[in-house]
Every structure is written in C-alpha cells, then in structure tokens.
Design a protein around this nucleic acid. Structure first.
Length: 422
RNA sequence: GUGGGUGUAGCUCAGCUGGCAGAGCACCAGGUUGUGGCCCUGGGUGUCGUGGGUUCAAACCCCAUCACUCACCCCA
C-alpha cells in the first residue's frame, strides 16, 4: 500500500469541520480589524527565504525543502509566510499606493523536521502582517486581536508572553553584556549552547537544559539594555495590553528563532501540546522590508500554528457533522426512479437530502437514515406510487403524515423552512 | 539529525514458553414479507506495518525498513 509522505497528513471529514470553523472565525475577527486576505505561492526562489529568514537560522540551515526545478532554478517550499508577503508588498509596490497595509493568509508551510505531536512537515499557519505602522499601540492591538480570536474559539489554558528584543541601536550593547556572562559560565553550558554562543547567543536564554538555565540565571535581561525609544515602545505596549484587558506575562527569556525580529516579540503558549509550547508567535520586524529591497517600512506580524490550535480545540470540543433534512427510502424500481429525481430537486432547492441507491429492505434504509441523523424520512413504495401519495416520517416523534406526490418537492421544502424557525 | 517506546479487524486492544488469528465496540444480514434507536440470532470484514532470516512450525525470536509516538533539537 502506498502511504502518505512522512510528516504529512490527511485532514478527514469529521475533523475538517473544526478547521473550517476556525478559519471562518479568524476571517471574521481579522475583517473587523481591517485585514485583507492575500494569497501568495507556496514556492519561492530559495534566495528569498535565505535572505529573509536569515542564513544562520535552523530553518534555512537544515529544515527547508529546497530543490532545483527542471530549468535548474533553486526553489523552496515555503517554511513560513512572512517572507513571501513582504516580497509581494515590495514587488507590487503596494507601499506607493498606501504604505499602510494589513494582510492575513492561511495555508500550508513546509519544514523538514522530525515529526511529532503538534509538528508536521506540512503544517498550516494562520498568518497576519501589518506594514507601515511603527506605533506600539498597533503591537498591543495585534496581540489583542489574537487574544480575541482565541477567546472566540473558546481556547483555554493559554498565556500570552511578551518581550522586547531591542533594535540595531541597543541590541549590540546587550549582546556584548550577554557574551561577557556566557564567557564566564561557558564550561557549564551544554554543547548546543556552546555552539549557540557564537552564532546566536540570545538563543542560550531559552535552552531547557537545567545546567544552562542555572548558568544564565545571572544573565542580564535585554529589557535593561533597551535604548530610550525601544524602552518607551515597550512601555506603551505593555500599558496598552493592560488597557485592553489582555492577560500577559513579561518573559525576559522569550527569544524568537528568526533573525529579522526587532523590538516586540510575543508568543501564545500552552501546556496542552506536550513538548510544544507555542500555539502562536510573532513580533515586529522593522528592518525586513528594507533588507529585501523595499523602502524602510516598519512591520509586525504573527503566525498561529493551525494544526496546534486544532489539536487544542479538538481536546475540548467537537463540531457536529451536517445532518440530512430528508432521507428518501424508496422500495422498488419505480419508486427509486422517482426518488432519484426528487433528490436532485431537493438538493437544488438547498435541502440536504440522502437516499438509498441500492436495493435494500425498508428496515435497512431506516437504519441508514437514523445513522445519518436525518430529520425526516420520505417512504415511498409501489402502493404509494399507485395511490399518488408518499409517507413522511418525523424521525424524532415517529409521526407519519401522507403527502400527495403532486407538488411533493415544494411541500417538503416548505416544511423545512417552517422547521428552521425553531 | 539523535535516543527510547509502539505497530494484530473500521476503532480500542488481548494473544503464555514459537504450535489452527481472538474479544468488545462498529459494520452487514435476519428475527419483523414495508418502518430507525432497545433486544435476540448469525456473519470476521485480517498482507499480524513491510521485506528478509532462523525453525518441522513465527503475530511471537533475529536483521533491515516504513509509519506512529515520547524526549532532545527547534519552532507555529
């Protein structure tokens, strides 16, 4: 048997309803804040991600699906959406018309990591980005929007974490101070952290190895090194979150894995995903648009791990599958031929209807109707056809009434609209 | 990429020291010649993940491989 690719998965009927529900809820929330949907390709030139995400990140170094196409061009299955959206913003010169743009997109991303719970090689993200606004009020609003969406979805057991990563002015000072400490405690660090120390020292802060955590307890906090502007940006953000009633935790250890982040960094964390802690994460990336060839443009965005969100919600709630309004139980060929036509007409009128296509006993058809959860069963056999009447059974009350075959479909549709009222 | 665990029916799982592949639920049929849920009876629907090896004999032992899963790494 041919199986699907490792780390990929099918989203089957029964679970796809929850995905749709989340998507609709997200679209509604985003629309209220003025975000427009944008759809970008799932492949880009490799260079876009290499430059956008950062050559030294794990994503670019070892997780991308990169290959040459038949023309010899190096292309990559997108590992995240931000780079593509920035590329589109620049390429279509959207800044020229109106530099302030708010986007969202929903779709698959690809990273070749070892799969486990909450982590797949093809996974889905709900992504939002805003260009052209530098104000920390926007940062707070965006986190609020995320908070609101989670609330609407009924997600519990989550906590927002925020931090500031500084900017090109103040981060070097911090980096220096941190490196000084790491030099002193180097022998206590795990091998990974020794490697991180030279490449991306900030990452040592969120290492989970106990000896590393111990070693960096004395580490300086980046928030103590912020320049005046970054400090006031961060102050307005945290005050704004309080004003909007978003519960959050200041997390001095919160560091993000991608190179482009500046100032605000945030995550929504949960304890419900085993080793995975983040359901959503994002931050400000004021330098990225320019570094990819656009005009200097402040920007901020976040990504929600769609699969992770589904996993959390699936543990708490389920979305019922649609149930047919009618099931037509036909006995005999003449009745089946009529039923087959009524079925088409009812569906065309917008009623969800099912029928039995095989030659089954009435009992078997009733069982199937019951199993599907049909509200009404229309029973029609030779005697009904001869008498010009069919039997309509209310499955809940077991009441049966006779309906003339004349104008049958219209009457059924009518009874349906009457029923919708309750 | 590293280490551990698991893989038997549609689902959840049992299967001893190697000796005819099982249970519950689900499903199908009948009981009721044209009426669902409850009940009764009958039915196994299977490449024991896959490929090799050992053996008279393998679901069971050995090797490889694939998938899932947990931890690491990292992130959404």
């Amino acid at each position: 048997m041919i199986q699907l690719i490792r780390g990929f998965k099918d989203i089957l009927p029964g679970e796809v309803e929850l995905w749709q529900h989340i998507e609709r809820t997200a679209q509604a929330v985003f629309a209220a804040f003025g975000y427009s949907e944008i759809r970008v390709p799932i492949m880009e030139k490799t260079e876009l991600f290499a430059r956008g995400i950062g050559e030294d990140t794990d994503i670019v170094e070892k997780e991308m699906y990169t290959f040459e196409d038949r023309g010899g061009e190096k292309i990559t299955l997108r590992p995240e959406a931000t780079a593509s959206i920035v590329r589109a913003y620049i390429q279509h010169k959207m800044h020229a018309d109106d530099p302030i743009r708010k986007f969202f997109t929903i779709g698959p991303m690809f990273r070749r990591e070892r799969p486990q719970k909450g982590r797949y090689r093809q996974f889905y993200q709900i992504d939002a980005e805003v260009f052209g606004i530098e104000s920390p009020y926007l940062d707070a609003q965006m986190i609020y929007m995320l908070h609101l969406l989670f609330e609407r979805l009924g997600v519990s057991h989550t906590q927002a974490h925020v931090n500031s990563l500084g900017c090109p002015v103040c981060r070097p000072n911090y980096r220096e101070a941190l490196l000084a400490l790491l030099d002193r405690v180097e022998e206590q660090l795990c091998p990974d952290c020794k490697r991180r120390k030279s490449r991306n020292p900030l990452r040592v802060l969120d290492c989970k190895v106990p000896t590393c955590r111990q070693a960096v307890t004395e580490a300086p906090a980046i928030v103590d090194f912020l320049c005046g502007q970054c400090q006031s940006h961060f102050d307005v953000l945290t005050r704004g979150l309080t004003q909007l009633g978003v519960p959050f935790a200041l997390d001095k250890r919160l560091v993000r894995g991608l190179d482009y982040y500046t100032r605000t960094a945030f995550e929504i964390q949960t304890t419900m995903l085993g080793a995975q802690s983040a359901v959503a994460g994002g931050g400000r990336y004021d330098g990225l648009v320019q570094s990819l060839g656009g005009p200097p443009t402040p920007a901020i965005g976040f990504a929600i791990g769609f699969d992770r969100l589904v996993e959390i919600l699936a543990q708490e709630q389920s979305v019922a599958a649609a149930k047919p309004a009618f099931f037509i139980a036909a006995l005999g060929d003449a009745a089946r031929q009529a039923a087959f036509q009524w079925c088409a007409q009812l569906a065309a009128a917008g009623a969800y209807v099912e029928m039995e296509h095989g030659d089954k006993s009435l009992k078997a058809q009733m069982k199937r109707a019951d199993r599907l959860g049909a509200a009404y069963v229309l029973i029609v056999g030779d005697s009904e056809m001869a008498a010009g009447k069919a039997m309509l059974r209310d499955m809940a009350t077991k009441e049966q009434s006779e309906l003339a075959l004349e104008g049958l479909v219209e009457k059924m549709v009518e009874s349906l609209s009457g029923r919708k009222a309750d």
